[in-house]
Amino acid sequence: MTTGLEPDLRPSYLEHRAMRIDAGRLTALVSAAQPDDADRLSALGSWYAGYEGAIHDHHTAEEAVIYPALLERDPSFAEADAELEGEHRVLADRLEVARQSLERLPSAAGGGRWERERDEDVRATQALEAILATHLPHEEEVAFSRYRQAFTSDEFADLGKAAWKVVGTRAIVFAGPWVLDHATEQERAETLAAQPWLVRVVYRLALRPRYERLARPLRSTPPLRARRTEA
């Protein structure tokens, strides 16, 4: 067991929050979709590519850097490690199925396949919500608790830098503003204050505006209409 300040896990919790909230928003969006929303659904594909990629990068970093380092410090993590990586595989599959369903839906607008394709997309996004509801609390319980015991703040920060080298700039270009989009004003201010001046400038002038353009189909107004109740 190491000594010193505990790791700052707030960014990790924020990532989990963003994953859960946006999976729910996707289900709500698709559930309410009507054929004349096809353009908006099609435009959502670029945002979803970033969302799927950010989750993939998150888990790649864990499996390549964080989990092995934790296992070296705490061999009791071995069983949980296997369980979490198995959940990652399920999550990757459900992300892919949701993407494929979302890609098919706009082309079904105005045709006889619309209702069926929309219902399949709803089931796909609900399945994505379900695995996130299982995996994220599990990871927080069995891994996050061990991070606090196994690493100092500086050690965990060094692991974060090593993880960033594995996943590359996409971890900043999309995931940075995506995660901060789900932060409170105080959380956002504290997170940005911890970043170098240049990163803060790039976020405000480039990354955040780019993310806002990508996310517009997810939350633009007026909202998608609720389904009409069949008589």
Rank of each mutant, 00 (worst) to 15 (best):
A109C: 14
A32T: 04
R94Y: 13
G53K: 13
R116H: 13
E79F: 07
R10D: 00
D158H: 12
T3M: 04
V179A: 11
R213H: 11
A150Y: 01
E103G: 06
V166D: 05
S153F: 08
L91C: 10
D36M: 10
A226S: 00
H16M: 05
S101F: 08
R20Y: 03
L14C: 04
H135R: 12
Q100S: 13
D93Q: 14
H88K: 02
W197V: 04
L224E: 00
S12M: 10
W178H: 15
T221C: 06
V173C: 06
L159E: 01
Q195D: 02
Y13Q: 08
P35D: 05
L14P: 02
D74C: 07
S42R: 14
A78G: 03
L71N: 05
S107F: 01
D93I: 05
E187S: 02
A109D: 12
F77W: 03
S12L: 09
E6T: 15
W114D: 01
E230K: 13
E6G: 12
A231E: 10
R10N: 00
E83I: 09
A43Y: 12
G4P: 05
V90D: 02
Q126G: 11
A49K: 08
H135L: 10
L192I: 01
T191G: 09
G176F: 04
Q149E: 14
G24W: 15
E83D: 11
T229D: 12
R225T: 08
D39E: 14
P68A: 14
D154V: 07
G110W: 04
D81E: 04
Q34P: 00
T125E: 02
V97F: 11
H88M: 02
R188Y: 07
S12V: 12
D93K: 13
G110Q: 05
T184F: 15
V97N: 05
S76L: 06
L29A: 12
E62F: 06
E85Q: 15
D22G: 01
R73S: 11
H16T: 06
E115Q: 10
E79A: 13
T229M: 10
A231Q: 12
E79G: 06
T221H: 15
M1C: 02
D36V: 13
R20A: 09
L218M: 15
L198M: 04
D57Q: 09
L9G: 03
Q195P: 01
Y203W: 03
R94W: 08
A98S: 08
F151A: 00
V201F: 14
A206N: 03
D81S: 04
P222K: 07
L214V: 09
H56D: 04
R73C: 07
Y211K: 00
F151V: 01
P209Q: 11
A43R: 15
P11H: 14
Y48R: 15
R228Y: 00
W178T: 08
A215R: 14
E103M: 07
I66A: 01
D39C: 02
E79W: 08
R170E: 10
